[in-house]
Amino acid sequence: MIEELKPQEFVKIRDLLVSVCGIVLNDDQDYLVETRLTEMAHEVGVNNFGQLHDVISKDKSLLTRVVDLMTTNETLWFRDQSCWVTLKEVIVPHLIEKLEKGQFNVKIWSAASSTGQESYSLLILIKELLAQKNQSEYFNRFSIVGTDISNEVIFLAKRGIYDPFTISRGMSEERLNKYFTKERKSYKINEEIKSRVEFKNFNLMDSFIPLGKFDLVLCRNVAIYFSGEFKKELFEKISRALVPDGFMMLGATESLIGIDNNFKNLSHGNGLYYNLG
């Protein structure tokens, strides 16, 4: 049995999370630490949270699991209408234009991909816009890298199979019929769409250099968990991971207000997006 979390152990774990992971916990979230980390304490074979703190502070893979356990993975298809209008009317047309002007391929990063809905939604949108312009041959020149700190959601994103309830959160009947195949009660994303995305485990605290440069970065509904200092570092690293005319998008409820950064704010209708000016 694991001993109950003591106040001084909570403070140690909270300090570790903010300094190493940039994740902020409030004073009243001590129960979250106890309820979500007890399983891990069992697994690593310690019997109190002080010892768990010592183990996770030395083991990076455990720390990333802590981050995963303290954040939610909720996501939807085509989440936040205003963002998708901007993607459809401004950003994707711009990316297509780059190909028309001779750029060989377009690289996109979904920086907190969760179970994959964001990446697959964007590929569906790209496919539709290309079809409208009779440029379907360009589809294979787009590629998305979807990353997340959670191994579990990456496993699910790679499977690309969704149950009816999950499908009902933003996927239209028409698109469902077109881009998915029914498998038992669930729906599997078609291979053509799936082949354009690669999902992998990645921690936003790490260096972005190995990922290369992107034409578009979606960093949506993830920075909300981070401390001010870590947010600043995050957006600085994203700015360096963009090509000079690259774009970044945040979630509809997020902005860069109050964060020291080198992005230029742009807007289209209600949608906000960013470039390097």
């Binding site: 909720e74 179970t115 959601v153 699910l156 309830f165 999950t166």
Partner: peptide
């Protein structure tokens, strides 16, 4: 609960 969180667990 969200299905993403349930399935991840």
């Amino acid at each position: 609960f969200t299905h993403e969180d349930l399935l991840a667990r």
